[in-house]
Design a protein around this nucleic acid. Structure first.
Lengths: 176, 176
DNA sequence: TCTAAAATCATGCTAAAGTATGAAGGAAAC
DNA sequence: GTTTCCTTCATACTTTAGCATGATTTTAGA
């Protein structure tokens, strides 16, 4: 998994390495054919050039890779679902994103903003795309109540619209 | 278009190829010049080793640096101020949230849904919490145009509201 | 060059969202 | 026992969002 990933990511480098090797061989062959210079010397030089190029590449990658590895946090995983229907093989690949596994609720932020339990509930349903009416139905309260809640949420989050509220709440890890 | 794209993408490789060719010519010349000198060989080999090592490092860094850049994108969230009055020590903590580093745009999904470039743009601004009016101003088009776009987006995404559209688009990796 | 898709804009309308204000019951804090 | 905050609900109003429909202009592909 990691090796293939490495190969894939550094494809250009390997392509270069291989192509330069091929080119060197070609040049060697041409030299051999026309007997211009001493072969042993040329092969020696070529080998050194190639080896030290690869050494340089290896060195650079070895020294720079750790940086990348420490920063990468794998968040998304794709799950593919295939549906086969009778004779006609309809393959529908629906791709979902798994929920962020390393989500930690930012309770400190909630407290700082002064958001109540109920407001968080409303916020969560908002983020799932429910209308105020639907949220009210789910929480068994009236539309007006949800409007009041959402209004208070906007004030506390210092935003103007629900879309902004959701964006900010997610950014602050108040909701998933 | 494709050829230029290839050239552009592998620019570093071609630059490297050309420069190494030039270097080889230079070394060739040096070889002829110092053929008589005793320690020419050692110097020659050493120079080649050094130069090709450096070139290898340069090549590797050139090709791997962009990956590093895309990984460490950070977004400012808020500034937390803790003020201690007794000792008059003011501590400022800046807290950031990392943007998802391994986001890959799901172009297959975009194509399947038939979303146009402009619609994606509108979708992105929507996800940032902008109103239709504001989106229109940012894209230099009228409110009505954005309404048309957003309507088309909802149909294509099979949703009823903008909040749902944003939620689904994020889930499908159509937007960040 | 012709054509289909994309992008633009408009009007009229309905639905939903958001604002402002007030009020009342209940629980926890002081 | 009063105060404070949370939750609930209401009314009235403004703004924004969304729907349906039609039309024009660009743009890009066959």
């Amino acid at each position: 998994m990691q090796k293939t990933g490495f190969l894939h990511k550094n494809k250009a480098i390997f392509i270069y390495g291989i192509s330069s090797a091929v080119l060197l061989l070609l040049l060697k062959w041409l030299e051999w054919r026309f007997m211009i210079v001493d072969h042993a010397m040329e092969i020696y030089i070529g080998a050194i050039a190639l080896i030290f190029t690869l050494l340089g590449i290896w060195l650079a990658l070895k020294l720079s890779t750790p940086k990348v590895n420490t920063v990468i946090v794998e968040k998304e995983v794709f799950v593919e679902k295939e549906i086969y229907l009778e004779k006609e093989i309809i393959v529908e690949k629906e791709i979902y994103i798994k929920e962020n596994p390393d989500f930690t609720l930012n309770e400190k932020e909630i407290e700082k903003l002064g958001l109540s339990k109920r407001e968080i509930e409303v916020l969560e349903l908002m983020s799932e795309g429910f209308s105020n009416q639907e949220i009210g139905e789910r929480l068994f309260v009236s539309l007006n109540t949800i409007k009041t809640h959402s209004g208070n949420i906007f004030v506390k989050l210092d935003v103007k619209r629900r879309t902004q509220a959701v964006e900010k709440a997610k950014r602050l890890s108040i909701i998933r």
